[in-house]
């Protein structure tokens, strides 16, 4: 699986690059919105893991772009406030900070399964 991992923290990026590659995934990283777009233009990916506080280009815009390119998005939420969340775009899956690697890996696995079987993870995730 080709993953583009985009969070505005270098430590997090480097740690997850190692973890995800260890799980046999191909990983590219991006630090801000413009990097995300340029990397996606170079080559598409199977999954975009995006933090909602990404700088330079807002997360909703990136999500819209990803939707157009038919790239599923796993949103990393830094804000638990429902009201603020509801003005952001719905994505195929989301995970709230703070999270442990096992939680992220589980999410990716679930997403992979549901994408390969055709239905959106939203219906499974809605309950949470």
């Amino acid at each position: 699986m080709q993953i583009l991992f985009a969070v505005p923290d270098r430590d997090l990026l480097s740690a997850y690059q190692i973890i995800l590659e260890d799980e046999n995934m191909k990983v590219r990283t991006a630090f801000d919105g413009t990097q995300i777009l340029s990397k996606l233009r170079e080559a598409p990916c199977d999954l975009l893991i995006l933090s909602d506080d990404i700088p330079r280009i807002s997360a909703p815009e990136i999500v819209r772009f990803a939707k157009d390119e038919k790239i599923p998005v796993l949103m990393l939420r830094t804000d638990p406030d429902r009201k603020k969340r509801s003005c952001l775009v719905e994505t195929e899956a989301e995970l709230g900070l703070p999270f442990e690697p096992s939680e992220l890996l589980e999410k990716i696995r679930l997403l992979e399964e549901s994408l390969s079987s055709g239905k959106s993870e939203e219906s499974i995730e809605e309950r949470r």
């Binding site: 923290d9 430590d11 997090l12 740690a15 997850y16 190692i18 973890i19 830094t78 804000d79 900070l97 703070p98 999270f99 442990e100 690697p101």
Partner: peptide, 16 residues
């Protein structure tokens, strides 16, 4: 907010 990111990073580093 200030706690969330560092905690996530520590988890990740620990995993590595």
């Amino acid at each position: 907010r200030e706690f969330k990111l560092p905690l996530t990073v520590i988890s990740a580093d620990l995993e590595v």
